[in-house]
């Protein structure tokens, strides 16, 4: 049995500890907001936080996770987190598939650097968006930093 704390809730899961956290979230826990895109930590669709650290969950064996996991579903009870609100205000998503990961990456960035520069954003936001919403993501992050979300 693997013990896992996700969004403040404790789970005991009967799963091979080598299974990536991503697939445990999606398959054992049914939390499908976190997405599979590449499986090799390249695209960031699977981004979650572990003890506040931005983490690509597709390559993280669940058995190695001892910290608290935060997923998109746990970010706010009503989509009201300032980053979510900024995403809505700036109409960021297109297909939307990457956006859970983008939002989790942006939250981590803003937690670490409340006033990120463009270079900070370039460095931290390496998640792939095939629809090409990068410009709006940048604007939305700046709007949160400026308290205008």
């Amino acid at each position: 049995m693997v013990k896992l704390d996700v969004n403040g809730r404790a789970h005991e899961i009967d799963v091979d500890p080598d299974t990536p956290l991503l697939w445990v979230l999606r398959e054992q826990l049914g939390m499908t907001g976190t997405k599979y895109g590449c499986g090799v930590a390249q695209c960031g669709a699977c981004t979650v936080h572990v003890d506040g650290q931005v983490t690509r969950s597709c390559q993280l064996p669940v058995g190695s996770v001892s910290g608290k996991v935060l997923t998109i579903e746990g970010l706010s009870p009503d989509s009201s987190h300032p980053v979510q609100a900024a995403w809505l205000a700036h109409q960021v998503p297109q297909c939307g598939y990457c956006q859970s990961g983008q939002i989790m990456a942006a939250v981590a960035l803003l937690n670490e650097k409340p006033q990120p520069t463009n270079d900070d954003i370039n460095e931290a936001m390496t998640n792939i968006c095939r629809c090409g919403t990068y410009q709006r993501i940048r604007v939305a992050i700046h709007s949160v930093a400026g308290g205008k979300a």
Binding site: R26, E27, G30, M31, T32, G33, T34, K35, Y36, T71, I72, E73, L75, S76, S79, Q84, W87, L88, Q91, V92, P93, G96, Y97, Q99, S100, I103
Partner: peptide, 27 residues
Amino acid sequence: LPRLDTVEKTNGAAVYAIDVALPGMLL
């Protein structure tokens, strides 16, 4: 006008085919 499908794309609730869950489903 704001899109009609944005909120669920910011909170993980949007369901894509890869997210479909059905009773007795195999993968």
